[in-house]
Amino acid sequence: MDKVVLKLDDLEVMANKEDTILQAALDHGIYIPHLCYHPDLKPFGGCRLCVVEIEGRGLTISCKAPVEEGIAVRTEGPEIDKMRRVAAELLIVNHYSECLQCARNTDCKLQDIAAYIGIEEGRLQRLKRTARDLPLDDSNPFFIRDPNKCVLCGICVRTCEEINGVGAIDFAFRGLDTRISTLKDKPIVESRCESCGECVVRCPVGALVPQNMRKPEREVKSICPYCGTGCGIYLGIRGDKIVSARGDRDSVVNKGQLCVKGRFGYHFVNHPDRLTTPLIKRNGVFVEATWDEALDLVTAKFKEAQEKYGPEALAGLSSARVTNEENYLFQKLLRSLGTNSVDHCARL
């Protein structure tokens, strides 16, 4: 890949020719405040916080400006600071301010920006809070939308469109009334939303949060057990319970993405109805058994059927929850038993 050299606040850095100034800065550990930028998505340019100055050219937003050989970029300066501060203060003063009650407390981009800029109480008090009291949308069983916390970065809209190709939501109305909306502002559950939750993980603030969110005390790297795709997953654990799941961005399979099952479908793990040992029906009731007992029984029944009715009497139905390799072995096994009647739940 072609490289260019540019100066970022007196630091000479090398960047990919296709990169934007913001990407180059973040890659080199230089923080430029930003809210609507997300590395997975096309730049939007709405929050105006990532403003920088290219010497000799003036101000530009770094999330859209491409790097160029030899340019000198300033990430701070009197004009930048003033504009950025005003933009941040306006966002903060119009944002729900009870951080301690927010599920995203300590994991919020707006908090990061406030901390970076440094908020002065006196300055905020000069501004008027333009009251917006919009109803919460908790129609989706997996996540809550709180438009009062929304900063209109559009990340959810772009995620739904660019990453998932669903387009369940879009910007609606304009001016101060602008909001993220489904058709006619109907509950999200009535839209074409697939509940994948990709928008929820990307929301920089607490406008999109999982239902009953609990923070894990630690995370365990795993592979999603739902299907053969093999998405990399981090399971959040609290005590001996799974309380969250997130995609592993380093996994080559899913690059951090998950579907609705992988992301929100972990409750079965700790469910009291979950089977943890094989069950064998004895005298009309299922009783717990060991794996050896169960497999012995299956073998015996197979043999019995084979002898009585011939091998063709056997059939196997496999599951999408196992891998391709396991499915391959499964059909091998059945064929070795002398039957070609092999099927799969995905065909149902």
């Binding site: 340019g45 709405g46 929050c47 105006r48 916080l49 504009m83 005003v86 933009a87 306006l90 966002l91 119009n94 501004l127 008027k128 333009t130 900063v151 209109l152 559009g154 910007f171 109305f173 304009r174 001016g175 101060l176 009334d177 602008t178």
Partner: peptide, 14 residues
């Protein structure tokens, strides 16, 4: 205001 950028959307209302 189209509502897209923070300064115009919120600044003008302020």
């Amino acid at each position: 205001s189209c509502g897209q950028c923070s300064l115009c959307r919120l600044g003008s209302v302020q």
